[in-house]
């Protein structure tokens, strides 16, 4: 299956002028996540049902009796975005089959943050992917539990200081490496997995459009810059997102039916320090820890390149022998 239409033609003037995630919400200044949601909604269009696991986005956008959502939207507990999304999809399917609702392509979309996806929601996410629901899951990863006051998550990068991985004499902050959830999703053999960033809006929206077209589960991992939690200047949000890509900390790629493709090519990776130095959460890092992070980034980036180059050839191979000779 090739789901790529000519998405490269997607130009700014073709972007929907309708706002589905409206202004007036309570996000912090420079919130990368609110921007990403706005772009996502534009790419999805109105025939969408959004299941939103609790977190910043639910709190800032749905303070009763106001709402920023111009789409059908349901809010649920922390760990259940994928499960409720599955239910929405299955329910719509059943009603369509019985002829109770018009036969339209209404996409079920589940969204949650890094805590709700990578920690407590992993189980329901894995279940939804395994069952093969026609569901798009978008993880807005701001690399900690920002809504509750910046506690570490398994998405928090190595060395970052948070309130539950404090930096000081006894510790340099987060001591584990970021969990690679896109890879876990690829391991579920789903048709479409991608990483994205609102700093590359057309790339991000293309990916959402593709994922919307996919019949079956798809997963997009979006790095959402959080000036409040990252202790970065709020006017640097877009730049921080770009630096994450340019340093190779967060490469933008997609995996279609197991085939890897880098969507935003970087000719030469910038030193990781360019990215770290703008963020207060990394301020305490000593050169040797930065060196460790640099090593790891190169390692992971090379692994990704191997998959892009290697798996491409590999996945075209057809098995022609006989089993159990």
């Amino acid at each position: 299956m090739n789901i790529i239409e000519n998405f490269e033609l997607y130009a700014p003037r073709l972007i929907d002028k309708e706002e589905y995630f409206c202004s007036g919400h309570r996000a912090c200044q420079g919130c990368g996540e609110a921007l990403a949601i706005r772009l996502m909604c534009k790419a999805l269009g109105p025939d969408t049902v959004v299941a939103n696991g609790t977190g910043c986005m639910e709190v800032i956008s749905s303070f009763y009796p106001t709402t920023a959502w111009n789409l059908p939207w349901i809010h649920l507990a922390f760990e259940n975005a994928a499960a409720v999304g599955s239910g929405v999809e299955a329910g719509l399917k059943a009603l369509r089959r019985k002829g109770k609702i018009p036969d339209r392509d209404v996409k079920a979309v589940a969204i949650a943050g890094d805590g709700g996806t990578m920690d407590i929601g992993m189980q329901s996410l894995s279940g939804a992917m395994e069952r093969g629901h026609d569901l798009l899951y978008v993880c807005f990863d701001n690399e900690a539990y920002m809504n509750t006051g910046i506690q570490r998550s398994s998405g928090t990068p190595f060395g970052a200081a948070t309130t539950t991985s404090p930096a000081g004499r006894a510790s340099f902050g987060q001591k584990t490496w970021k969990k690679n959830v896109p890879e876990i999703m690829v391991a579920h053999n789903v048709p479409y997995v991608a990483t994205a960033s609102p700093s590359y809006p057309l790339d991000f929206m293309n990916k959402v459009k593709k994922a919307r077209k996919v019949k079956g589960p798809s997963y997009i991992h979006c790095l959402s810059v959080c000036p409040t939690g990252w202790r970065s200047a709020s006017n640097l949000t877009i730049k921080m997102g770009r630096l994450a890509v340019e340093t190779g900390v967060f490469p933008l790629y997609e995996v279609e039916d197991g085939k890897y493709r880098i969507t935003v090519e970087v000719d030469e990776l910038r030193p990781v320090e360019d990215y770290l130095k703008h963020q207060g959460r990394f301020r305490h890092l000593t050169p040797d820890v930065i060196e460790m992070i640099q090593e790891r980034v190169y390692q992971e980036y090379n692994k990704l390149l191997d998959k892009v180059n290697g798996l491409h050839a590999w996945s075209d191979l057809k098995f022609e022998g006989e089993l159990f000779e």
């Binding site: 805590g115 407590i120 539990y145 809504n147 509750t148 006051g149 506690q151 309130t163 539950t164």
Partner: peptide, 8 residues
């Protein structure tokens, strides 16, 4: 523990 307001 696990983050939840108001006991963080």
């Amino acid at each position: 523990g696990y983050p939840i307001t108001p006991q963080n």
